[in-house]
């Protein structure tokens, strides 16, 4: 892997945010709006569910962590779409860049974007609702890492599908993460799901992370079992995503679609 090629593409994507208010809104505005709306809903609901402990912490913690997963997925797929919309993919792929370097560059872009979005959410969650996500302590680190990796896995699969199916599949960039949300137990425990969905949820890394988050907030200690499950599943997810991407990339080259993408 050549770091100069990776950095070239990271810089290319960061340049985009220098003078584009709509793109900056994508980073800051939506996470902020999510937080405000869900925060008020949570406050309202706690009036009726006073017996449920840590309700605000559950929901706002879930919201911030979900946004990390969603942003890391989008960091890849939307950045890929930016190259497609700019009709720039050909310029990139006639250079000596390898597909893995391209993917790695977009991973770094996604880290920058989600760091910025997370900072906004953490600050406003604390200012508006006195919720401090850092109460989760060091447990937060493996949780965030797992959510980011799952987001990357989904992002790589989304990119592969857009490459294969063309611009008409770009809606997947926004939809794929939400396909996993119902079985990720983001805002509710896995136990409320019907049995067959509970089985599926066992194989979703995020469901273990969100279950783990609730254990920590309830004072149940570090959820080692859940974190290990999530890590093992993520290893399989990212590997599968890369294999899927390379398989699609070879088909796209065989069908001559790379030159036509974006048309």
């Amino acid at each position: 892997m050549k770091i100069h090629r990776v950095l070239a593409l990271v810089i290319r994507h960061l340049y985009l945010y220098k003078r584009s208010i709509p793109r900056l809104m994508e980073v800051f505005y939506w996470p902020f709006l999510d937080l405000v709306i869900w925060g008020f809903i949570t406050i309202y609901l706690t009036k009726f569910k006073g017996t449920l402990p840590d309700f605000i912490a559950f929901l706002l913690g879930a919201l911030i962590l979900w946004d990390i997963l969603f942003r890391s997925q989008q960091g890849l797929s939307v950045s890929f779409l930016e190259d497609m919309w700019a009709r720039n993919l050909l310029n990139i792929f006639v250079s000596p860049i390898r597909p893995i370097e391209y993917i790695f560059a977009l991973m770094l872009v996604s880290i920058v974007k989600l760091l910025l979005a997370s900072i906004v959410m953490v600050i406003f969650a604390w200012l508006f609702y006195s919720f401090n996500i850092f109460l989760l302590g060091l447990s937060l680190i493996p949780m965030i890492v797992n959510l980011v990796i799952m987001g990357w896995g989904l992002g790589i699969i989304t990119m592969a599908l857009i490459l294969r199916l063309g611009q008409e599949a770009e809606v997947l960039a926004w939809a794929v993460a939400f396909l996993f949300q119902p079985v990720s137990a983001v805002f509710y425990p896995v136990s409320v799901l019907p049995p067959f969905l509970q089985t599926i949820a066992q194989f979703i890394p995020a469901s273990h992370i969100f279950e783990g988050m609730r254990i920590i907030i309830s004072g149940g200690g570090f959820p080692m079992h859940d974190v290990l499950w999530a890590t093992a599943l993520n290893f399989i997810y990212i590997l599968t995503a890369l294999v899927f991407f390379y398989w699609n990339f070879s088909i796209v080259r065989r069908k001559g679609l790379l030159a036509r993408i974006g048309e």
């Binding site: 290319r12 340049y15 985009l16 003078r19 584009s20 930016e82 190259d83 700019a86 009709r87 720039n88 050909l90 310029n91 006639v94």
Partner: peptide, 14 residues
């Protein structure tokens, strides 16, 4: 090697 085509563009906002 390198390539140029009148049908390929570059990022517009850069």
């Amino acid at each position: 090697v390198n390539f140029s085509s009148s049908y390929v563009a570059m990022p517009y906002s850069l």
